[in-house]
Amino acid sequence: MIGTVLNRTRGTVTARDFQRWAAAVNDLNPLYFDPDHARANGHPDVLAPPLYVQYAPLGVPTLDQLRPDGTPDRPALPLDGYPRRMAGGQDAVFHHPVHDGTAITATTTLTAITPKTGRSGPFLLVTTHTTYTTDDDTLVAEITDTLIALP
């Protein structure tokens, strides 16, 4: 199971989508909104906020793929008995800025499932590594995610 590619999805970064994300963060950096400002700083167009890039290739879960709490089921993960999931953290490296119109492919590999015992009982630490590449295979970002799975 470790080393398995869990997911490969592709999606296009668009200015409207990353500007909605930046507006929701209340991060109104003109590099994300003002093409003239972006060009004056060496970019071909407005750029996506670095943390946004991970959202562009996300798949589209249908309503019947959502569990009662609203989270998508992830049948690819062998986490029977640990239905509750919490984000544990990230280690993200950004190699290149991403601009409006760039298609990104995200490839997620399962790197570890580690059983742990905390104050409130057992849990699993699940780590995945995701690469974000453009259609010409340029690696623009890579992110190691830690997920905490609780009984």
Partner: peptide
Amino acid sequence: AFSAATHNAH
């Protein structure tokens, strides 16, 4: 707004 911008229905 952040849930909507990230398609997160939790």
